[in-house]
Design a protein around this nucleic acid. Sequence first.
DNA 1: GCAGGTTACG
DNA 2: CGTAACCTGC
Lengths: 265, 265
Amino acid sequence: MTDWKAATFNVNGIRARLPVLLEWLDAQRPHLVCLQEIKCQDKDFPESAFSEAGYRAVWKGQKSFNGVAVLSTEPPDQVVSEAGDEILDSEARFLAVKTRGVWVINTYVPQGRSPDDPAFAYKLDFLKRTARWIASHFTPEDPVLWTGDINVAPDPLDVFDPQRLDGKVGFHPEERKLFQEILSWGLTDLFRHLHPEEKQFTFWDYRLPRSVQRNLGWRLDHMLVTRPLVRAARDCFVDTAPRTRPKPSDHTPLVAVFHLEDLAG
Amino acid sequence: MTDWKAATFNVNGIRARLPVLLEWLDAQRPHLVCLQEIKCQDKDFPESAFSEAGYRAVWKGQKSFNGVAVLSTEPPDQVVSEAGDEILDSEARFLAVKTRGVWVINTYVPQGRSPDDPAFAYKLDFLKRTARWIASHFTPEDPVLWTGDINVAPDPLDVFDPQRLDGKVGFHPEERKLFQEILSWGLTDLFRHLHPEEKQFTFWDYRLPRSVQRNLGWRLDHMLVTRPLVRAARDCFVDTAPRTRPKPSDHTPLVAVFHLEDLAG
DNA sequence: GCAGGTTACG
DNA sequence: CGTAACCTGC
């Protein structure tokens, strides 16, 4: 009844993904969706398509790449589109909103290119600075949800071939260690918490032939939540349907359901 | 019963036009179709889509632009893919086939850019050389069909605003005069012959807003036939349906029906 | 306005 | 593989 359904979805181009996204919104009817890689300038964001579907939208775009947005059935109570951090604000990768007493931080973490590329250092820095931003604004007892395409598969269970992929960007020891350090502040990887053994990916590379059919995927999209939201969580699951539609994104949505009454108690 | 239905269609990209083209083939079931602006290299021609639809295909493509093809329910008896003329063969614009005793010359005549551009001289040359090729191989008593996107609107009836367009490429006095000289050898503009008063276009520019709804078109695609085929002709009409479909070409097909028994007589 | 080709990015 | 961008051509 008062359950609150939140989701994250790297759409890889919001204009190209409108059919898939609208169909999925209609099927799942989440209260809030964090989108990444909208890949459009602010003026090109298809706001009316979402208002017609019953969603308010806030977005932060740029030309060609990156870009994040939050769709919600209720307008957010607060929006932070500039973190006040030169790295977090250097590209359109960070957007936070407050709604229903919950702070939602939506990030599109840099992919990192390769471990010896400056982009990898930038990625680690981006992760640290997002964690620092959260720690400087909240405590682990505040209801905080850091979600989005985090671009880190934290565990061998989270990639299709941990031997072969060990050391590759997205499954590099340095990223995995940092991911755990970030959690240690007081965040929980909600999907893994609720499904300790489940091998479930959120991303399948376009470039690997038949990657979906062969399940050659990665779990890169996450819901990292503070303790109040762990207690309130009812469910967390990956919806693979959008990845099987015509003209899919290379990612598919991750969904969580919270019973927000449990926050007060 | 032994009627033979032939058509010409500038598809403006055969890969982009496959849905529209296949739907139209299914509706009209022509025995032969001349295509122009297939805009693909030979290796990229979607042959199997046509064989599955019951059509044999011969084609002559190049990278990016131009490109012509002939689809037919029966394999052609002869194919001429090189005219042996440096202008006619300089780009993929000329393809002739013999079938049912009829020689069909399919051309994508250069558009000409503007009257002061070298492309305009090239266009006039291409027209003259095609006419010369025909005259050197046939007599006006042979059954010959020169069809395709001829890129000339021969008469004020053939453009949406003859005053405003006078002198523009496609409706320039020099092209119109040449067109008539070419006919004088022994060719008949079959559509105009059968419909002397009809204002019916085959092309509507994408760049003019709502050009189709406002009928701001040109008659640029033709069936130029020798006397035996004039006598055999039963019908010649423009099918505007494909221009009203989603993702249309800027041209629409021109169709002719011939009673080939009449050739013998 | 729409096609195709190219490049950047992942 | 696939998105967006920029380019050419009609």
